[in-house]
Structure formats: C-alpha cells, structure tokens
Design a protein around this nucleic acid. Sequence first.
DNA 1: CTCCAGGTTCCGG
DNA 2: CCGGAACATGGA
Length: 287
Amino acid sequence: MTKPAGLSSIDLRSTPFDLSQTLGCGQVFHWRTHGAGWLGTVGDEPLYAEQRGARLFVPAGCELLARRYFALYHPLEEFGATFPEDEAMRAARDFCCGLRIIRQPPWECLATFITSALKQVAHIAQISHTLRERFGRRVVWNDVPLYTYPAPERLAALSESELRACRLGFRAKNLLGAAKMVASGEMDLMRVAALPDAEALVELCRLPGVGPKVANCALLFGFERPRAFPIDVWIERVLRRIYFQRKRKVTARRLREFSASYFGPFGGYAQQYLFHHARMTQKRGGS
DNA sequence: CTCCAGGTTCCGG
DNA sequence: CCGGAACATGGA
C-alpha cells in the first residue's frame, strides 16, 4: 500500500471507521471531496483526510486533530451493543458501520442547525459555504482556499439584510439574534457545556430559532452528548412507522418520551443511524 | 404548477 | 397540552 506524499497514516484496524458516511450523513455540511479524499476545516484549521481501507491519511502533524475530531476513540461496538434489538435498528446499525458522530465546535454546529430549519441537506450546505466565504476567515491548504465558520462576534456585527443575501430567508433573524446573544455573553456556550443534558437543552432553547430539535442536534454533534435524540421529519416517520404501527394520534410529546428511553444511553448514535439509513434507502415519504 | 425540506413560534381550543 | 398556520427559498 503506497502512502500519499506528505501524509501520515492513522491505523484503523482496531476500530471501524467510514470517512465518507461520517462526513456525508448530514451531521456536518461543509466538507467537500477533493481528489481521493475530503477537504474541510476543524475550527480554524484546514484538514485533508483520505481513507484507504483500514488506514486514514492526514497531513503530518494533524493526527491528533483528526483523531479527536473524528472521535476515533469512540468504541462503536460497545455503543451498538446498547441499541434496542429490533429489526429496523439492526438494519440501520449494519448499514452505518463505521459512521461516527464527530466532535464539531459548538458554535458552528449550533449556528449551522439554526440555518437548517425547513431546508434540505444540500441547501444547508450551500448556506454554510456562502456564510463561510463571505464572513469567515480564509485559510489555505496546498493552494486550495478554505473558509472557517464566522465567529458569533462577526455575525453579530452584520445586518439582517446581509444575512438574507446569503439566502437564509426567515432564518436570518434567528441566526443574527443567536449570534448577538452569544457574542454579548448573554448565552455562554462554555457554561452550557458544563450543564447536564436536560438543563443544557432548556438553556439552548432560549436562543431564537432554537427549539428541541435544533438544540438536540447541537448537543449531539457539538457538545458530545451521545444520548441527545433530535426528532426531525425523517426520524418522526421512522418512529411512527416502525414503533407505533402508523397509529394516528401519536403526539410529539409521546414520540419524545419514547425515544428518550427506548434507545438508551447512546440514543443519539442510534438516531443518526436510523436517520442516515432511512434517507439513503427511502428517498422521500416511502413506506 | 405543486409539494416538501434535519423547525420554531405564535395563536386559539 | 394540542393542532394549525406563517415563515423564505430552491430542488424534485
């Protein structure tokens, strides 16, 4: 096995990892394929990553950054063993082998999901790239320009119309309001990170445009809360079809209570597997 | 053209 | 607490 020039290798033989599924499953939106690998940013750092079987290649010196960002220390087999033993869950778990919940920086994760409301994954990615290119910091990897996600202070200084120009629609007001609260210190994300799940959820919901779904996405993808279980339209369809036999009159509250207990301590992982599996196999509204 | 997208908020039963 | 409606934009 040849080694790409300038890159060093991370041994994946002890743990399953699927880079493409991990970056393409809808938990993060700014990574793009580049040659045989992927190019994106981790906070303020550019990162190139390329997988060849049980090896992950990253630039020399980026090994620890990559291990941490991709959560290569998560024991996926142990997580999977805690999932409920039903047919839908088993199929999703098998389908998503090696898919990891990565560790995104809290602000860019939270902000991105504020802009995700009623948008398709492709649109969320487009909005993210526009915000980055216009207001983020430019970093370069091998002459390829990349852009970091704009800090809350940067977005807070913009006008709503400048954000609307990024095709944010009604989400512009929410992103601006949230950025102002974080920039002013009225919302302290470091403090949120220290709160128990339930309290962190309530705290995040103080932000405009943040309800239970967005807050749970932020907790799961940005605050390392593997139990957080976001319920979006896809997951709601799965829950109603598989676990409630298409019954009518199942309230949103009932779905939340069920998923919070049924899927266990790593319910967020289970959720992402069900989400990705459904999206890849059912297209839209399929039975 | 119509429908829907990783929702939140507000409003009337 | 619950169901509906409004909210912007673009792809299917």
